[in-house]
């Protein structure tokens, strides 16, 4: 099984990679990627099924907070049922599910994060007061002040010069460094998977 899975991973990877450089191979690339899209969708389904099974088990065991698990399963089943019937873009689905529940909850959670972020930033210098933390707080304060406007317009210099200079020049160097680092890491990880060194699909 290990050899089979490794062979499949390498072969698929090479075929997909060839599609980037050779137009003749793009056909195979497209077929394989199309299958991959389907498999990704099935995998997401499997994950949702697993979620249902875990919470159903909690309800069956009458474990702690099983009431919440029951609510979760109930909401999932109702949404899935109506979604299958009505399709997700149906106005009722959008009104009740998306606009009534999903967006308010997610946005409110993100709104709560505002308080948490601000509190954490205020307390940061008490935990650590090295150069990086001080620069971090100072830069954030500059961006805050540079982003706001007064009744008569931007804060002079700060909003018109310093903020763009910091965010587009000084921050750009670090951001590009992070991006290149991420790309290098992704490249390395992909190569390891492609050469069969890393086998995250299992098989040791």
């Amino acid at each position: 099984m290990r050899i089979l899975t490794t062979t499949i991973a390498i072969a698929v990877g090479l075929l997909v990679l060839l599609g980037y450089f050779f137009p003749q191979a793009s056909v195979f690339q497209l077929i394989l990627l199309d299958w991959a899209i389907l498999f990704s969708g099935v995998a997401a389904w499997v994950g949702i099924f697993n979620l249902v099974m875990v919470h159903a088990d909690k309800v069956r065991r009458n474990a702690k907070d099983s009431v919440y698990s029951a609510i979760l399963i109930l909401g999932l089943l109702v949404t899935f049922t109506f979604g299958l019937i009505l399709k997700p873009q149906h106005p009722y689905m959008q009104a009740f599910i998306l606009n009534g529940i999903i967006i308010p909850v997610e946005a409110a959670l993100l709104g709560v994060l505002t308080v948490t972020l601000l509190y954490a930033a205020i307390r940061l210098l008490r935990r650590r007061s090295d150069v990086m933390a001080i620069v971090f707080i100072f830069t954030a304060a500059i961006i805050f002040l540079g982003s706001v406007t007064l009744p008569l317009g931007d804060i002079p210099i700060l909003g018109t010069l310093i903020r763009p200079w910091v965010s587009q020049i000084w921050a750009l160097g670090g951001a590009r460094g992070i991006l290149i680092g991420v790309a290098l890491g992704a490249l390395t990880t992909g190569l390891r998977a492609l050469f069969g060194v890393d086998r995250p699909y299992g098989g040791a």
Partner: peptide
């Protein structure tokens, strides 16, 4: 199938 996804994803990432 997971190996399939990993292989394709690795190539796309590279």
């Amino acid at each position: 199938v997971m190996a399939f996804l990993v292989g394709a994803g690795a190539a796309v990432t590279i």
